[in-house]
Design a protein around this nucleic acid. Structure first.
Lengths: 244, 244
DNA sequence: CGTGAGCTTGACTTGTTTCAACCAACGTGG
DNA sequence: CCACGTTGGTTGAAACAAGTCAAGCTCACG
């Protein structure tokens, strides 16, 4: 049979620490919250996953709270006829399922884009830590608010903007989030997304994504080489989405 | 100058109690949480607002937590060039701004559709009640999960469905939410939305909304008379959104 | 070397927007 | 009371954005 292997030559380095440090990194916060507690309280479990794999299915409940440490993932929803919408991209340091904290069913599936490394914390411990530590609750509320904010932006994008605006805003938003994590080199960043990821996130077809990106390249706005993306004209790109 | 009056012949009845009782009604929950507490703890303030008025602006912070008791409102985001996206419709019993609980800036504006009655609770008290009562925290988490769920559905709708599907799913979702509140009479419900509200929520133009609704009427799916909407063929409408 | 995943390009079709005119209902102010 | 302006809805024709279909390309893998 033809090649079914998912991600051939990858070796995932061991242990956290690759998890970038930034405001509201749950991995950091929970690890710190475990200090001075009984031995196995909040003890994380380490996991890895291959690219393109579905990690959590929609509607499922988890008894551990997962935090992404390395690699890119996406949360998505698929209609019965196969149409797919990517709700958000998960970057290192992101909580992978906020509903898991309260044992509620997940509203969307989580899928690996690249090979991943992630940790899971026992739900009961997380819940206890949150209800005892006001700072943790405040952080959780900031994460919630952030997600709501993002969801609202996604809604305006999908509902009220054209294809070029959507793709531009997607790239800009990713760039900002990566910058916060110190994962950019100047205007260049690691960019493992295939065009079909962009299509499913922007709510347009793969073919059209190709056209839009080609247009951007011709206009000297962005440059994509292999798995790296460079924003050659940040101001121009921002002008595309109407944010001068 | 011509008539600037907003809602001519409305009289808003006094006091809560119109607030429908259903799972996760914050108004109820907070009122119950105030029982057996010092006199002014969690004491609500009553408010009214006229239809079409903006109640809270995007980016603002509130020191009181608002809960809608009567009437319909919408949360919306407007682009600099005037394009508008309605994120969600607020129905009686809904928390009007979940970020207000933690004093975080609102990601969207809140606008009255009909004349409204709503109550606000002091933020500090709400926060204290939540951190002391696990049941309240659990309820908040359910509300938040519900909103995330809704946001995800909105994203699929806007990103991956056509106009007719979007409008149908909008009507169905509203009908379900009203049913939960006991605000429907059979398949008929009070429906104060104008076509431009539907347009801004579904991410299409007013003209096109008119076309889609006319098509629904011709197909015998829904009937709109004045301010009442009847789903004449629920199964048929569900079939439109691909949910048999 | 063969295969499949991913990207590019072009021609054609479809869905949605835009523009425009028109009507009905309603309040308002002369 | 009537004439007027506004809001909300309806309809049709033309313009446009995006989708679909199809072919050809590269490249990494097995």
């Amino acid at each position: 049979m033809p090649h079914r292997k998912q991600s051939p030559k990858t070796d995932i380095p061991p242990s956290c620490g690759a998890c970038p440090s930034f405001e509201d990194n749950m991995c950091d916060a929970l690890t710190r919250a475990a200090a001075g507690r009984p031995p196995h309280f909040l003890e994380p479990r380490e996991h890895t996953a291959l690219g393109r794999r579905i990690i959590y299915r929609v509607g499922g409940t988890l008894d551990r709270v997962p935090v992404l440490c390395q690699g890119w993932a996406a949360t998505a929803l698929t209609l019965s006829d196969g149409r797919r919408q990517i709700i958000s991209f998960l970057l290192p340091g992101d909580l992978m399922s906020s509903t898991s904290i309260f044992g509620l069913p997940s509203p969307c599936s989580v899928e690996a884009i690249t090979d991943l490394r992630y940790r899971t914390f026992p739900r009961a411990d997380v819940r206890e830590a949150i209800s005892q530590d006001p700072a943790l609750l405040a952080m959780l509320s900031r994460i919630w608010a952030d997600q709501a904010n993002l969801a609202d932006q996604v809604a305006v994008n999908l509902g009220r903007r054209g294809a070029t605006e959507r793709v531009a805003s997607l790239i800009l938003r990713l760039s900002q989030r990566l910058q916060k994590r110190g994962m950019t080199q100047g205007q260049t960043m690691d960019f493992p997304l295939r065009q079909h990821h962009i299509a499913d996130a922007a709510g347009i077809t793969v073919v059209h994504v190709g056209n839009v990106l080609a247009e951007f390249r011709r206009a000297g706005l962005v440059e994509i080489n292999g798995r790296a993306l460079t924003i050659t004209d940040p101001a121009g790109l921002r002008r595309v989405v109407g944010m001068p």
